[in-house]
Structure formats: C-alpha cells, structure tokens
Design a protein around this nucleic acid. Structure first.
Lengths: 339, 339
DNA sequence: TTGTAAGCGTTATCAA
DNA sequence: TTGATAACGCTTACAA
C-alpha cells in the first residue's frame, strides 16, 4: 500500500507502453527505441515516479544496504564510519547505522533487525557480554559479518583491529626508556578484547624491563571521560610515587587530563602521560600528548573490503592495522622549538 | 530470491500449520492456542527463520527507517545523531545515515535513494548550492522532510536550528564589553544559513556599539580546521591591530588555536578568542575557551519530534533551540581559581 | 481457533 | 523492438 504513489503501472499507462518496457528503460537492461525511451522518461518525470526499493529487493534479493553496529557516537567510530561509507559508496551501498551502547540485548535486537532487512553485510563492534556461542549463530548465517575494533575469539568471525598489544608495549617501553619505573595504566572493561590487548602490551613492556607489575597500578573503569577522571584520582591516591600513566583510549584521556589540571600537576615532571588514539585536539594541549594512534578510517575501509572477500566465499581471518607511536612532550621528550 | 532462506511457508510446513497462523503468531495479531503457538515458535527457532522485511514493507507500506543526511562525520553531527537515534528508537525506527560532503549532486542522489526506500521521514542538513526550487520538489512529496542545523528559506520545509544570530551577538558583545574594538570574525561559506546568521549577529553587536564594520576583519574560509588556520593567519596579516576574533565553528577553532600557538601569541593578552560549539576538549585548553554552545543532541531529538508532528499533517514551522554563552578565560575574563 | 487466497510493485522469462 | 505474466514473501480480509 504505497500511499497514492505512482508505480510502474501508472507510468506505463501514462506513456502508453507496457510495464516491462518502463522497467527496462529505468534499468537500461534491454534495447529500447529512443522514441519510447523518451516517452517513458517524460512520464516518470511528470508523475514523479520513484522506484519502490522494497519491491525490487523482494524480487531480486539484494538490499544494497550495509549494517554497521558501533558502540556509540564517539570520534573514533566516526572516523571508522567515514572509511566505511567511502568504500560502501563504491558498491552503491547505503549505511544502516546503529549504536549498541555496550548493551548485549540491544545488540541482539539490532542484529536481528539487520538480518531481517537482508543487509549485504554487517560490521560489528561486539559488545561486552557478547558470548562466543551466541555470536556463532550469526556467523553461521549467510550474511557476512566482520568485527571492527574488537574481537570475540573462537567464533570464526573475521575482524579488522589494530596492533593493540604492540602499540601499547611500544608506548610503555617509551616511558620506561625515560627512566620511569612506577607506571600506572588506566583500562576500560576487560571484557573487551582491545583493552585486554593493551593490558598485555603494558605487562610485556614491564616484564621485559624486569619491573614488577603491581595490581594497584592498574585501574579498570568505564571507558569514558568520567571513568578516566575517577581512575586517575584513585591511582594517585593508591600509588603515592606514581611517575607515569598509560591511558588506553581517547575519552578516558579527557578525564585524566582534567583531573591532572585540577590538581595542578605538571606533565611530565609530576606525572608523564601516554595515551591511545589520535584526535586533532591533542595537538593543542600543552605539553603535547604522546600517543599510540590507530588508523581508524583505514580500519573502516578494510572492514568493508574484508566483507566483500567473505561474500566471494574466500577464507578470511583477522586483519590487524598498524598502530603508530606519535611522540609528543607529555612522555618527557623535548620537542625542538618551532621556528 | 532469498537465497535458500526459510520463509513463512517453510515454517508453516515444518509446524504443520497454515502460513497465516505463523504470521499471526509472529506478530501477535490474533489469538492462537498455546499449543500451536509453541509449535510455531519452535519451528522458527529450528529453521532460524528471520522475517523478510522487504516483503513486509511491500505489503504494509511502512519502512520503519529514518533517513538522516548530515554533511560529514564531525563531532557536532555526532551529537545530533545521538539525539536522533534516541528518539527514533522510541518509534522502533532504524537510521539510514549518509554524508553529503557539501556536495549538491551527492545530496540529490541520496535523497532519491531515501525516497525509493520509502523512509518514514528525512532529516537533512541542506548543502551549499541547494536551491529553493529543487528542494521544494522534495517538500511536495509525501515523505516528511525536516532541516537540521541549517535552513533554506522559502521552501516551506520546517527546520530545527539554534539561535545563531542571538548567540553570535552575545558572544561579540561580550568581547566588546571587555573593551575590544578591533574584532575579527572567521566564517564558513555564506551559502549556509547558520553562517549567514552568525555573521549577522557579529554585525549587530558592532552596530549596536557604533563600531565600524571593516571588510578586512571578516574572513570567509572552508569550515574546517585548515580553513580556520588560513583565515586567522590572513586576519593577522591584514589587520595589524587585531584585538579579538570570533570563530564560528568548532573545527575552525582547532586551526585558529594551532596558528595562534605557532605564533606564540598569548590569549587573551595578544588576541582574545570566542568560538561556537562546545566540545569536551575545550575545557582542557589553557586558557579555557569562551563559547557559544548549541544543544546539538536536543536538536536531533526535536528534529525527530517535528517529523512526527508533520506526519500527523499538523502545520509546522522553524524551531530554534537556545544557544548559551559559556564563559571561559579566552575572552579576557578571569576565572576564580579552583579550590 | 485455524485456513485460503488476493495483492503489494518489482524483475525477468517467455512469447510475439 | 515490445508485451503479458509468473514469481518474490509477506499481511490480512474473508471463510470455515
């Protein structure tokens, strides 16, 4: 019931041709004389005809929609979305976007909605609580699924992530090179693979340097600005001789810096800081923040590529994008003065 | 052709009931004995049945999709999207999101795609070059359209914006109250209503204070960080005795601050700064930036509300959300020290 | 309490 | 170069 909208039949009648001819003109799917072609196009214009996609989809089976489930609308996922849209557009696909808000039930409902719409593929940042078993059911379906940013191991779903362990290790080793020994780390929920990996990188760096890992140096909080704020305050309370801190995402960094400013601590003299995720604003902070940067946009692009590979029934696995350590001054390095 | 997927008929056969019964069970649309209900549900489970939305939509006419066309994936539109999703979810709608990248042709193509999918409504940040005439055609259709953030006047399309003129005026008047007379303004393209309005606010403030408006104090640039960077440099070159600058969005502010840092200018002693759009990071800048803040999330929520009002065929017009001046130190105000 | 069947607007296979 | 027509999978009047 397409509320009074013209359909192919209306256009056909208006142009005095058959319904099939109109369809073929619109799709360029067979030769039509220029005369009738023009008649049809004019009728389309006059009646303001717009094809009913759901009818087309029902007949032909392709939705030309890409489902993207992110966690929330934060800058990191925005960069990913940008990359995703760029690649999706090349296929003529549009984006069905939703945020799960780290809620497993919401994610389930959204996955079902996407499957019901027969999207061409699903990009998913799996949510805390996502269990292997339940996700495997979705992997079994004929809609290709690719994890972004995070992973749930052992459910055979390919993923695009970044070299989190290595990046974290690099960052913490850099702190160690500066001579710091009491190094704290602020982590989001450890049910999320990326956080587990960053923790592992932190531990490796300390182990390699034969520094004891102390549980009070490790704070787990909600991965938001507010969490970072609380965590750094706890860290400073619990570890009196804290020299440096590794902050594992951009949102938490905001809270950490806020708390440090409130306490009038100097960076890096009183406390050195290294964090994860580059965002343009960090260049403005004084001293500039040393960061492990992930190529978020590239992650988005690769995820769509991986999806396409998977649709061709080729075997695919995890793909890790290279992180990079961007040296600022917050670690203790001195920047050469600007000319 | 739903590639080997089970459909209602399969489920019905598997449960030994009619196709109608299955449909009714799934939709709770008529009384079914608990016995058969269970049989059906089990069949659904066993066959992993997922309703084909396009078939439902074809039959019933509703897509339960909301089209959202933003300009790009920047923090301001993210906040809007967050609000939009919140309200859309209450209706059970999903979001079809795309960015126009300020490209009129892309916007046209995207609008057509949304209409073809029979979305329940369209939220649109109209693009530079969007002419009244062409947009009116879309307004005539039966899909409700609401402008967000920006407006194209005289095409009878309702909009949710913010009090840009007033906000800008307030900001510039605040600078004037500090005694500044040489006040520059950095604007994005003037084909965008919000920028025109902020310009108007700037001019009003100067006029009210009987300050001459000088064309070299007004720089128009692309509304990105790079644009802000170039614009402030030009401004400083052209106006040797510049005292203050009003920056009309958050992205441009980034570039402006970067240039100011590079030149080692002090804020507010050498140049005072007031800008538009609050983002969390500005709290970390020293001195803190004085800002006109727009309630971006609320704009998104209201836009969906307006859409619904419009669907009920009630008359609707423009709706302006209140901006707020957040006083920082960059204008010359002294903040009381933190306890 | 359940079943039958028409029809939503396309595309694509025949046939002319 | 064009037309008639059978699906696609669902909802929903109407029957039983």
């Amino acid at each position: 019931m397409d509320h009074g909208r013209p359909n192919l039949r209306d256009v056909a009648a208006h142009a005095n041709v058959s319904i099939a001819t109109v369809s073929h003109v619109l799709n360029g799917t067979r030769l039509v004389s220029t005369a009738t072609k023009e008649k049809v196009l004019q009728a389309v214009e006059e009646l303001r005809y717009f094809r009913n996609e759901s009818a087309r989809q029902l007949r032909v089976g392709t939705s030309e929609l890409l489902g993207v489930l992110i966690v929330d609308y934060n800058p990191f996922f925005m960069d990913i979305l940008h990359g995703v849209e760029k690649m999706a557009t090349k296929q003529g696909w549009k984006l069905l976007v939703a945020s799960t808000g780290e809620d497993w039930e919401a994610q389930k409902e959204l996955l079902n909605a996407l499957i019901s719409r027969r999207v061409e593929g699903i990009l998913l940042a799996p949510v805390v609580g996502a269990t292997k078993h339940e996700l495997q059911r979705y992997a079994k379906g004929d809609i290709p699924l690719v994890f972004i940013d995070r992973i749930v191991e052992g459910c055979g779903i390919p993923a695009v992530t970044s070299t989190n362990v290595y990046g974290a290790q690099l960052a913490v080793e850099h702190l160690i090179d500066h001579g710091y020994r009491k190094i704290g780390v602020i982590l989001g929920s450890l049910s999320i693979s990326s956080m587990v990996e960053r923790k592992k990188g932190y531990e490796r760096a300390l182990n390699n340097a034969r520094i004891d890992i102390q549980s009070e140096c490790m704070k787990v909080c909600n991965a938001l600005s507010s969490g970072g704020y609380q965590a750094i305050n706890q860290l400073l309370a619990d570890v009196s001789d804290l020299e440096a801190v590794f902050v594992t995402n951009n949102l938490m960094l905001l809270g950490v810096l806020k708390a440090i400013q409130e306490r009038s601590l100097r960076i890096p003299e009183d406390i050195a800081v290294v964090a994860v995720d580059f965002q343009p604003w960090v260049e403005l902070i004084k001293p500039s923040i040393t960061l492990v940067s992930q190529p978020a946009e590239k992650i988005g692009e690769m995820a769509v590529n991986l999806l396409m590979v998977q649709r061709n029934r080729e075997p695919v696995a995890e793909m890790m994008m290279k992180t990079e350590l961007i040296i600022g001054e917050s670690c203790g390095c001195r920047k050469s003065p600007v000319l």
